[in-house]
Nucleic acid binder design. Structure first.
Lengths: 214, 214
DNA sequence: TATATAGTTCAAACTGTCTTGAACCGCAAG
DNA sequence: CTTGCGGTTCAAGACAGTTTGAACTATATA
């Protein structure tokens, strides 16, 4: 690998930028986006690195390249794996897991967001409903107040609809261009060859027995 | 001074629930939503309280009712005012400002979110573009990498479109029901009367001179 | 079974954000 | 001009979420 001599020597040394600048830019951009959507910045960074390299990377490599701790890498990879945006493989001749990115990134993220949003909205709606009930049965609450609470419920309903539509549209857009992140034809071919070269033969799409995600 | 012993007596006392329960529920529900959208929880709580009461409230009242500090109320009201979701009025016979909620809450929030999102996306796109440029002109970057960066740019574009569509739809939905939060006919009448009773005459839609929002 | 290395866990440290509270400002009344 | 009070500001503190790092567990090899 080309980056070899640059990297491994100075491990303890806090090297601020060991990645080529274009990688750093992409990795951080994705990190920001993912952070914006309520995930951890480093989850996005790890995914982006794996996607850019398009070659299996060990936890150790990720740790070195992104300057994360052992623990952080363990946690982050597990989470990404749970969401299905990366998966781990174990080359037969190698005792450590390697990670590769899933290309259906947005689909997965979309599903997670949708789920999160759904339960959140459910909670809000329940609270407003309860408030309305209480206000109705309380002598202290004037009818206008009940009316206003009802209006907010309706508003919540509308927002829910809009968010649902957004997520669906978003999903469709991405489905429409069908695997926009996936390497196409020739490139994919090359990628596959490169992978094989690296790990020396078939990859075991790991039904993680060793402390895999619960 | 007399204010000392009177006020502070029950101020330090952490009154957990001084609001009727239905108000607490609504106020917190809105707080959660607003927090979810990347604003401060208490901004949502203050707006919700003003909306529910539908009557001008002083900073002091807000402070007491929601258990916030003087400073927090000042900051939060200023921010809400800047976004145009509340405004301050000064009754002629009264030396303190009173706050009232704007009913076009979602419209305003939508605009702010849109703005925030737009500049964020612009930044991300610029970073990806720069990364692509660098990768193209670097001998170390294989063409597949350039290709993958280009793909991510396209993805960013799509997401941007989806978000834009969402915000527009959301706006339309709310416009469609035209002022869903606004008190209608009769109720509005009553509300207005109530307001007049309380503040004792016309309200000055405040071109805040005294330390108003910049 | 012993050894070495990979991987996980979790309390403590860190980070960024929000809130507090006391000093300060400015206006209006005396 | 002084006093009283509403309002603002901002450094310090509280807090939530994230990361670290060292102890611990698991796995592979011999």
């Amino acid at each position: 690998m080309l980056r070899g001599h640059l990297v491994s020597a100075d491990r303890d040394q806090e090297g601020p930028v060991r990645l080529p600048q274009w990688e750093a830019l992409v990795v951080d951009a994705v990190g920001n986006v993912i952070d914006f959507w309520g995930f951890k910045r480093n989850q996005g960074r790890v995914w982006a690195l794996l996607y850019l390299r398009a070659t299996p990377m060990s936890a150790q490599e990720i740790q070195d390249q992104l300057g994360l701790s052992k623990g952080a890498v363990s946690m982050i990879t597990r989470e990404l794996e749970q969401w299905g945006v990366i998966h781990r493989v174990r080359p037969v001749n190698n005792s450590s897991w390697m990670f590769v990115s899933e290309t259906d990134f947005m689909g997965m993220i979309g599903r997670v967001v949708q789920e999160r949003e759904a339960s959140f909205v459910a909670r809000v709606k329940a609270d407003l409903a309860e408030a309305e009930r209480l206000a109705r049965s309380s002598p202290d609450a004037p009818p206008e107040v009940v009316d206003r609470i009802a209006r907010m419920r309706r508003l919540a309903q509308l927002i829910e609809g809009a968010v649902g539509a957004f997520l669906k549209t978003s999903q469709l857009n991405l489905d429409g261009v069908s695997g926009i992140l996936k390497d196409s034809g020739e490139t994919l071919q090359r990628g596959a060859n490169e992978i094989r070269k690296r790990v020396r033969s078939r990859l075991l799409s790991g039904p993680r027995q060793n402390g895999g995600p619960s």
